[in-house]
């Protein structure tokens, strides 16, 4: 088809001309397939606009859409329009609106920021809200009934980031409500499961004379942890076998060979970031808090 997409390279033969192919820096696909990916608006399109603007125009033309300036550069001075816009904000819109409210001089740096924080937008907005204050709300959501300012202010904490494990069980339940709101696109697929309060019980079971097992119950209530991975970490740390078993009740438990009751409890606190108040030791039938 058209040669404009790929730049011809030095041919190693007339028989078999070789060309260098442009692959999207964000998703790795040929750019013509980018719109099918989940992060086209947030990652691919900005990347393309920055590195291959002529290619971007060409592809947009082929798709039959009107070529506009990158959404991030577009001046959107009339921010809070009373009419509800047709679609929710993209990340670029959200960031632009933020800068327009607090530091209008810096609006130009929005594309660069987006590039820098691609994939880490949550952190960017968290830092921004800390520095400047609550971010402006998206007019698309403005008339939904349960959307108020109070939620907006700490909304960034609720944004999903699996590495940051909420420390307390109670914390999780209060956040889960807001969690479902801001997500769009690929992130929307991740469903929060944190409605159960975190409670981990470590138990020691004696088998024969000096043989023991350490059983961890309730590990699945810790958000952001896969039981299998956790089990593997335990087996590495304690140099013994470790497995995930389903109990009769339907919950799951991790069984580790050897007597590591206290060590395991401490490891759960240190490595997995579970609050000490959520970890319990089972001492011959008495459940006692770790500390």
């Amino acid at each position: 088809m058209s040669e404009t997409v790929a730049i011809p390279e030095d041919n190693d033969s007339n028989l078999l001309p070789r060309r260098s192919v442009v692959y999207c820096g964000a998703c790795g696909m040929p750019p013509e397939y980018c719109p099918y990916g989940p992060d086209f608006e947030t990652h691919c399109d900005p990347w393309l606009a920055r590195h291959h603007p002529e290619l971007r125009a060409l592809l947009a033309e082929r798709r039959g859409t009107v070529v506009t300036a990158p959404a991030s550069v577009k001046p959107t001075t009339d921010v809070p329009t009373p009419a509800r816009p047709a679609h929710p904000w993209t990340t670029a819109d959200r960031l632009t609106a933020f800068y327009e409210q607090y530091v209008p001089d810096k609006v130009d740096s929005v594309p660069a920021l987006l590039e820098k924080y691609a994939g880490k937008e949550d952190k960017l907005f968290l830092a921004l809200t800390k520095k400047y204050g609550p971010e402006p709300s998206d007019p698309y959501y403005s008339d939904s009934a349960d959307y108020d300012d109070d939620e907006e202010s700490n909304d960034d904490d609720a944004d999903d980031d699996d590495n940051r494990v909420p420390a307390d069980g109670a914390d999780v339940t209060s956040d889960s409500n807001q969690k479902n709101k801001k997500r769009r696109g690929a992130a929307a697929k991740k469903v929060s499961e944190g409605t159960v309060a975190t409670r981990v019980v470590v138990q020691k079971i004696s088998q024969r004379k000096r043989r023991h097992l350490t059983v961890i119950q309730g590990m699945e209530t810790v958000p952001g942890i896969k039981l299998k991975d956790a089990s593997k970490m335990f087996s590495k740390r304690f140099a013994g076998s470790s497995s995930v078993k389903e109990t009769a009740v339907g919950t799951k438990e991790i069984i580790i060979q050897g007597d590591h009751q206290v060590d395991v409890a401490e490891m759960i606190v240190d490595k997995f970031g579970v609050a000490e108040s959520c970890v319990f030791l089972d001492m011959d039938g008495d459940v006692v808090p770790l500390r």
Partner: peptide
Amino acid sequence: KLLHRYPTLKFTQVTVDKGAIPFLL
């Protein structure tokens, strides 16, 4: 990747319609 690099290299080929693209991906 090899096919993309050598546009004149024609293996036996078929074409699918637009609707199939997201499924193939």
